[in-house]
């Protein structure tokens, strides 16, 4: 493998550069995916059937905590990449672990949120509105869950191999993914929760 020393390790090989661009294209596809979910959400927003509307079930406190957790995790994964570029393995791993813990916290609160929704009579089957609400939150949550598993794999590889073009590349791509999930959450937070509670 030819490694180009002038670039950060994660861009070091040709395959690494391909991986990163490919992942950006994948993020483009994800934008379309969430765009479609939002389109469906706005279409079904008033189709509450006999179930509750958004304003009746949304609560600000959990949403606020979720937002702060995810924003912070986005910051810490940024720090992880920063540490990685400075060649500090331990700091990288530490920030990775913090990120995943914050992600777990986010998921915990989201699950709590779901339970509250269901208790208030908004189940997956209640209405068109609740179905799309659960689908859009669930899709984002599933992405976070996949991210956590993925992150664990990367941490274990960082432990084993340290900072190599290969592991750095994976870690960097993971960071792109994680930041993107944060972006999606910001839109969910703004246009589902805040709009619903206004």
């Amino acid at each position: 493998m030819k490694v180009d020393k002038s670039l950060p390790l994660e861009y070091g090989t040709e395959q690494n550069r391909l991986n990163i661009l490919g992942f950006w294209v994948f993020i483009g596809a994800e934008i379309a995916l969430f765009g479609t979910l939002f389109a469906s959400y706005f279409t079904l927003i008033n189709r509450t059937g006999n179930g509750p509307a958004g304003a009746e079930i949304f609560e600000i406190a959990p949403v606020m905590i979720e937002t702060i957790l995810l924003l912070t995790s986005s910051f810490t994964i940024g720090l992880a990449i920063h540490a990685m570029r400075m060649g500090k393995v331990k700091a990288t791993i530490t920030f990775f672990i913090i990120t995943l813990l914050l992600g777990l916290g986010f998921l915990g609160i989201e699950i709590y949120d779901f339970i509250v929704f269901i208790h208030e009579g908004a189940t997956l089957q209640t209405s068109g509105f609740t179905a799309i609400l659960f689908l859009i939150l669930g899709t984002h949550g599933a992405h976070v869950l996949v991210g956590i598993f993925w992150g664990i794999f990367i941490i274990s590889q960082l432990f084993k191999h340290g900072l190599t073009p290969r592991t750095n590349n994976k870690a960097f791509i993971f960071s792109l993914y994680w930041h993107f999930l944060d972006v999606v959450w910001i839109f969910i937070f703004s246009f589902i929760f805040m709009k619903g509670m206004l």
């Binding site: 995916l33 469906s40 189709r47 059937g49 997956l124 089957q125 179905a131 799309i132 689908l135």
Partner: peptide, 26 residues
């Protein structure tokens, strides 16, 4: 398509109301 098929699958297998004609489906 992925999203549409996911919704259709949920309607058929999990009795959701994305595309039904009652309970706010469209």
């Amino acid at each position: 398509l992925t999203v549409a098929l996911a919704m259709g699958t949920m309607d058929r297998l999990f009795a959701t109301n994305f595309f039904t004609t009652e309970n706010g489906g469209m």
